[in-house]
Computed example of a mutant assay.
Amino acid sequence: MIPYGRQWITDEDIASVVDVLTSDFLTQGPAVGRFEDSIKAACNIPHAIAVNSATSALHIACLGLGLEPGKRLWTSPNSFVASSNVGLLCGAEVNFVDIDLDTLCMCPDKLAQALAEAEAAGTLPHIVIPVHFGGQSCDMKAIHALSQKYGFHIIEDASHAIGASYDGGPVGDCRYSDACVFSFHPVKIVTTAEGGVVTTASGDLATRLDLLRSHGVTRQPDLMTREGDGPWYYQQVELGLNYRITDMQAALGASQMTRLTEFVDIRHARAEAYDAAFADMAVRIQKREAENRSALHLYPIHLAEDGPDRAALRRRLFEFLREHGVGVNVHYIPIHTQPYYQGLGFREGQFPNAEHYYAGALSLPLHPQLSDADQAHVIAMVRDGLKEIGQG
């Protein structure tokens, strides 16, 4: 089976982890700082805080920006549940903003409409989390302009987008946000096995995030409420969590980051081959803006067929491809249709673009170890599969 995503681990990556295993540090040691420095350099940002998952990164970013009961978080329904779950974990109310069917990212026009309605109702969000779906940045200039008008914070969920660029700079530089979050799960562009990072331009926010990831405990004298009892002394000054990343993970991440440009370049070459092959097929592909380079974590397609049988046709195509060795996947089941969220009062039909995309969506194999022969097989099977379901 050709997987839709796969890590690429080299001898150098393995050696970096072995070096940690034979050192004095396994958890919080010098490799964490090296990994954070690699992110800061790649994103042209002064602060990067590494944690044990992107979910943890989103959670502490929300906490650091003051999300709490009585406040609201808005995000995209076309995402993994973590993007909204972190709001609920903070005790906040969660809502969604529908996507644009071309970019598959949060639609600025729909956000503007929702904000105008929320202002009239007195229910404006405290935080908005745009999701850079598939590695393509949302329209951050438009979303940032709305934040200036309506007074909300922005956390970019860039779990798919390490190595992407927007408006002439790297995603993660936080020119249009308070913070940006990356994921380093094995199917992502760079991996630490499990791990996440928050970037921010704010020194005050970075200090708070550093506390939140490690129990709210500090040994820094300038953060303590009184002089310490001795060199062993520490204080808990926040209610924090144990979200620390290990030195083993960080060493792997720092090694992987040396090949970030190579990873993204290979993905672009593969995506361009897909683009050319699918130009005459009955599928739609995600719009990618030439001036804003996607990191191409995913290559999503969706059926051009808009009829009532769209979901059934997608299932037949999914099963055909799996039967023929193509490990397609589906990203994502709209969050508001999940049973837990239905229990909170959400219902199908509220965010029709996300639902429409999902009904016809497939994510095709895309990763640096995808061979020419494997990609040719994927393309041939998509073509044959479309014919099989009467869409060829």
Rank of each mutant, 00 (worst) to 15 (best):
V17Q: 12
L21S: 12
T22K: 14
S23N: 10
D24R: 15
L26A: 14
V32S: 01
G33T: 10
S38P: 00
A41Y: 04
C43K: 00
N44E: 10
I45L: 00
P46C: 02
P46Y: 04
A48I: 09
V51T: 11
N52R: 12
A57C: 12
I60G: 03
A61M: 09
C62K: 05
G66L: 13
L67D: 08
K71M: 13
K71Q: 07
R72I: 05
R72Y: 05
R72M: 11
S76Q: 11
P77A: 08
N78F: 10
S79T: 06
S83W: 00
G87L: 04
L88E: 08
L88R: 11
G91Y: 12
V94W: 09
V94R: 10
F96T: 07
D98L: 05
L101P: 06
D102M: 06
C105H: 02
Q113M: 04
A114F: 01
L115F: 09
E119Y: 07
E119W: 06
A121S: 13
G122L: 08
H126W: 14
H126P: 07
Q136A: 14
S137H: 11
C138L: 04
D139M: 07
M140P: 04
I143Y: 07
I143N: 04
H144A: 12
H144L: 02
F152C: 02
I154N: 06
I155F: 15
E156S: 10
D157S: 15
I162R: 14
G169M: 03
V171E: 02
G172Y: 07
R175Y: 04
F182D: 01
V187G: 03
V190H: 00
T191W: 03
E194K: 02
G195W: 07
V198I: 13
D204L: 14
S214W: 01
G216P: 01
G216A: 08
V217G: 02
T218F: 03
D222C: 05
L223I: 11
T225E: 10
T225F: 11
E227D: 14
E227M: 11
P231N: 14
W232R: 15
Y233R: 12
L239E: 13
G240L: 09
G240F: 15
Y243C: 10
M248I: 13
A250T: 14
L252T: 09
T258N: 03
T258E: 08
T261F: 11
T261N: 10
E262W: 06
I266W: 01
A269K: 12
A276N: 15
A277I: 00
A277E: 00
Q286G: 01
Q286H: 04
A290Q: 12
N292T: 06
N292I: 02
H297D: 13
I301E: 09
H302T: 09
D306S: 15
R315Y: 04
R315D: 12
R316E: 15
R322H: 15
R322I: 11
E323P: 02
G327I: 08
V330I: 15
P334S: 07
I335G: 00
H336S: 02
T337Y: 01
P339F: 05
G343C: 04
L344I: 11
G345V: 02
E348F: 05
G349M: 00
F351L: 06
Y358G: 00
A359C: 06
A361L: 03
P365Q: 06
H367R: 03
Q369C: 08
L370W: 02
D374E: 14
Q375E: 11
Q375C: 05
A380I: 09
M381G: 02
R383V: 12
D384I: 05
D384K: 15
L386V: 14
E388S: 08
